[in-house]
Design a protein around this nucleic acid. Sequence first.
DNA 1: CGACATGTTGAGATGGATCAACACTTGTGG
DNA 2: CCACAAGTGTTGATCCATCTCAACATGTCG
Lengths: 226, 226
Amino acid sequence: MPVKAEELKFIEAFRTGISQVNAGDTILHEQKPNGKLFTLYSGWGFRYKTLSDGRRQILNFLLPGDFIGLQQKFADGAMHGIEAVTDVSLCVFPRDGLWELFRNHPSLGYDVTWLAAREEGMVDDHLLTAGRRNATERVAMLLMHLFRRLERVGMAEGGQIEFPINQQHIADALGLSLVHTNKTLRRLRQLGLHEIENGKLRLLNTRALERIADFYDTPPPQVPLL
Amino acid sequence: MPVKAEELKFIEAFRTGISQVNAGDTILHEQKPNGKLFTLYSGWGFRYKTLSDGRRQILNFLLPGDFIGLQQKFADGAMHGIEAVTDVSLCVFPRDGLWELFRNHPSLGYDVTWLAAREEGMVDDHLLTAGRRNATERVAMLLMHLFRRLERVGMAEGGQIEFPINQQHIADALGLSLVHTNKTLRRLRQLGLHEIENGKLRLLNTRALERIADFYDTPPPQVPLL
DNA sequence: CGACATGTTGAGATGGATCAACACTTGTGG
DNA sequence: CCACAAGTGTTGATCCATCTCAACATGTCG
């Protein structure tokens, strides 16, 4: 989405710097929020929460273009962690600059709100999935969801996408056990619906997956970028 | 939270009017978004999504002070409905006024974002609940969650709150079946943890409920109001 | 009075969890 | 170069939390 030159300049000035994080590292610790804000430039990450006995729920996956950290800043004590799946590069914004941004560039503030609302929409979807879909539907949903998102940011090539997450990630995102995730994934593969190989996901029958997941996507007109 | 007089005036001018909705009526239809924005003045409501075969997931409950409709405005096709639990009065904002608000009163825009982020934080919690807690933990969580929220808006009197939702609502919010919700609720009651009677909820052992749910609340400093 | 919403309870079925192996790959230190 | 540990995927056996089905009770309302 186009941004005015002036706004772009402000964004440039606004950001503190670019930061690199290695695969598997924690970007934001669950217990100690730091109020920083990020935009994900490249790589995959995820937001998660854990119960005190270690059960983990992945809230959503973070892909290039995602804006991160609003909930941390505002949430009522309810914290989440962020972890890098692959090596990741982040654009870091200062802890207290958000108000500046709203004041000086309301249109950017508007965009931030847009992004926040879009992310909440995604979490809404995942809640429906975890609450009301069965294992097969959940897996189909996740595959379609991620595939479509990658498509939108232009990261689908030749009908396949990079797929750096493992079955434990999938299980934690869907609220399933690792073993059952494996069996469900395998069943879908044997039905010829998808293939995961060498860290690539290829969907072989999106029609069927959409039907199973009861997932029908409407791409948004255009997405703001920060 | 205090608001400047000038801002208050803008809010007054901004709103289209106040609207009343009867218990059980749909405030916002799942399939046809209208882009309107609301603030809930009084009563209870909830946001929900349904699968095409009718399975319903309640995304969160709406209580006085909640700001509604952002996701509808921005979501990528992913829609949700809103229904009134009790009779409800709403402050209605015009469909396209949000940008005006951001431009003329950045601080109000900032507040909107705050509210959006806080709501996402709540959905995050519910996703953790639906994905990783068992039935007992879920029910304990819901009771604590709602009780604390009502407390914060000053609607807890004498250790009890209005509790207008029925077991079907609870089941749909937690991703459980109606029957199992009933049995779980009953077990907690027989343990002396709570009482629901005549539309009132009384928590008899919040300590135990918190422990079961693994839920420890940190109230936010102050909440903006629109 | 009957229709309807809501809550309650039991019996049986089942989807998914848990437990326990094992295979394969990769990286590491000796 | 090999031995070994660690991470990941796979599979079978068994268990159990939750779902489904089916009744029945109660209160409200026309």
